[in-house]
Structures are given as C-alpha cells and as structure tokens.
C-alpha cells in the first residue's frame, strides 16, 4: 500500500475520528463522510484513496465504537501508523482488517505530505519522500493468525463451521 501521510497529534480519540452524534446510522460509507471531522473538518475532502494516517501516542482512545476503524477504512485510509494505540481501537482495527503499525521512530520523522509505502508482510514503512525505511516488530502469532484470516469475522466463521 502506498499513499500520502496525514499527521495527527497525541490522544486522538474516537469522538474526533467519528463523532457519536452521527452514530444513529451504521452504514460505514455514510459515516466515512464525517471521518476525522472534529479534528480536521476538511480531512475527508483532502484525502485520496490509499492515504495513510500517522499519529502520536494513544490513537483511538475513548469509546469502543468499531465505527472508528471501519469508517477510516471506508474513507479510503489504507493504514494507520501511530506511536501507540488505545487498546480497544487496536483490537477493533485487527478485527475489522484495518492495517495498523506501531512505530514511534517512523512517526517522529514523517512530515505531512510525505509519500509512504507500507509492506505489511515484512513490517516495513518506506518513506519514499525522505528515502528512509523503518521496520516494526511483528504482531504476536495469535494476532497474526486473525490478520491472516482477514479479520475476526472470517476467523470465527471458520471456527463456527468446524464446530458444526
């Protein structure tokens, strides 16, 4: 995946990613229109499919709403790179198949507008603008097995089938 970097600060909460006032619908393409609205009202008009969000510590703190990673995915964000993730956002992103990478070093060096290429299988972040490469530690095997299945829905579907 390849896209332009959009930079956000520390503690970006789920109300900034998708305000609760819109959650009386659950159509993610509808919610995508409000993605990051309270952090940057023009965000959705500026981004292109494949773009990458980078952020500081504790990205996705706050609510359990899975609508947050799902609407980012629906908005065309291909990946989120943060210094760290809040735990519910972290598991939701894995469960719904939004690629996430933790790398304080990469985030520190990335400037908004840099072109990034992420090679998930190798855990590599290539900053094509700055010509630098960062490697992130692999996911624990258990999480990798969910990711390999394509998220928690196919993972459980397989289990439900096996259990008959």
């Amino acid at each position: 995946m390849k896209g332009m970097a959009w930079k956000f600060d520390n503690n970006i909460n789920t109300d900034l990613i998708i305000p609760a006032r819109y959650l009386n619908v659950s159509d993610m393409s509808e919610l995508a229109k409000h993605c990051m609205e309270d952090a940057d009202p023009n965000f959705i008009h500026k981004i292109k499919a494949g773009d990458i969000v980078t952020a500081g510590y504790n990205f996705g703190c706050g609510s359990s709403r899975e609508h947050a990673p799902s609407c980012m995915k629906a908005a065309g964000i291909s990946c989120v790179i943060a210094k760290s993730f809040a735990r519910i956002f972290y598991r939701n992103a894995i469960n719904v198949g939004l690629p996430i990478l933790e790398s304080p070093e990469a985030v520190e060096s990335i400037n908004e507008g840099d072109t990034l290429e992420v090679i998930l299988e190798r855990g590599e972040i290539h900053n094509l603008t700055q010509k630098t490469i960062y490697t992130v530690s692999p996911f624990p095997p258990f999480l990798q097995s969910i990711i390999n299945c394509g998220g928690l829905v196919p993972y459980i579907r397989k289990k439900v089938k096996e259990d008959g």
Binding site: R65, N92, L152
Partner: peptide
C-alpha cells in the same frame, strides 16, 4: 472490559 461490535458478535456466537 469494553470491546467492539465484532468482538461482541464473536462473544454471542461462541
């Protein structure tokens, strides 16, 4: 603990 909707679905199913 809080979890997301897909975790809730998995919890309801399994």
């Amino acid at each position: 603990t809080g979890i997301g909707s897909t975790d809730m679905a998995a919890g309801m199913a399994t």
